[in-house]
Simulated assay, not measured.
Amino acid sequence: MEDNRGNLVVIVAGYPELMKQFIDTNPGLSSRFSKYIPFKDYSVDELIDIFEFICKQYAYHITDKGKTLLKEHIAKLVENKDDTFGNARTIRNIFEKAVALQANRLMGLETLPQDLSTLTEVDMKRCFQNH
């Protein structure tokens, strides 16, 4: 980092307290990481937008009832968040779990529906069981 100081950018990201602990582990790090940009957590609506963006990326969509359940669940997560709450990472994990559960649901059907890219209320309910 020091040899290429003028030509190198190193970005580290993480939870504020853990990042402080990381920087404090070595006295030389604090002089090398001199710029800090704090980011606010996303709102519930922004997290829903992120979920829908991920859906769009993978050609999925969520039903209105599924979206209602998703919003309720995310609101609870945001209200009760702890230091491990992962914002967009949490949303990506929810999407991946919902897709896996949707695949399991479809696998059990005799005939497949025409639309294989819909995440339903059933998928989202199963996704949020045990939470």
Rank of each mutant, 00 (worst) to 15 (best):
M19H: 08
K97V: 13
L77G: 00
I48S: 00
K56I: 07
L47M: 08
F39T: 03
N87H: 07
K97N: 14
K40F: 10
I50H: 11
E79A: 13
D41M: 09
Y58G: 06
L47N: 02
I48T: 04
I74C: 04
F95R: 01
P27F: 14
I54C: 00
Q21C: 01
N26I: 10
K56T: 13
K97Y: 08
K35S: 05
E96A: 10
K67F: 03
H73E: 09
F39P: 00
F95T: 03
K67H: 06
L69K: 14
L18T: 13
D24M: 05
T63N: 02
V78C: 06
L47E: 02
Y60E: 04
T84Q: 09
N87T: 09
K35D: 06
K71N: 06
D49A: 14
D64Q: 05
A100D: 10
I37R: 01
D82G: 12
G14R: 08
D45N: 11
I91D: 00
Y42L: 07
A59V: 14
K67C: 02
K35R: 10
H61T: 13
E52N: 13
D41I: 07
K56F: 04
A88Q: 08
E79R: 14
G86A: 10
F22K: 01
K71D: 01
K76Q: 09
K35N: 06
F39E: 02
H73W: 12
K67V: 02
N87I: 07
D64R: 06
M19S: 10
D45T: 09
F85T: 08
F22H: 02
A98Q: 03
M19I: 15
I62C: 05
I54E: 05
D49F: 15
P27K: 15
K20R: 14
S30D: 13
C55Y: 01
I48A: 00
L101W: 12
F51A: 09
G14P: 04
E72R: 14
E79G: 03
I91N: 00
K97D: 11
I94P: 01
N80E: 11
F51R: 08
H61G: 04
Y42V: 01
H61S: 11
G66E: 06
S31M: 10
K35V: 13
R92T: 05
R32A: 02
K71C: 03
D49I: 13
K76D: 04
E52H: 11
I37M: 03
E72F: 09
D45Y: 07
K81E: 03
T90N: 07
I54M: 03
I50E: 11
Y58K: 12
E96P: 00
T63S: 07
A98E: 00
L101N: 15
S31Y: 15
F22I: 02
K20T: 15
Q21W: 06
V44N: 01
A98C: 04
Y58M: 06
S43E: 11
G86C: 05
L18R: 15
N80A: 12
Q57M: 07
F53I: 14
D64H: 06
D49E: 14
Y42S: 04
L69P: 05
L70Q: 10
G14V: 09
K97A: 11
T68C: 05
D83N: 15
C55F: 04
L101Y: 15
K97R: 15
T68L: 06
E79M: 09
A59Q: 13
T25M: 10
L47R: 02
I23E: 04
L29D: 09
L70C: 09
F53T: 15
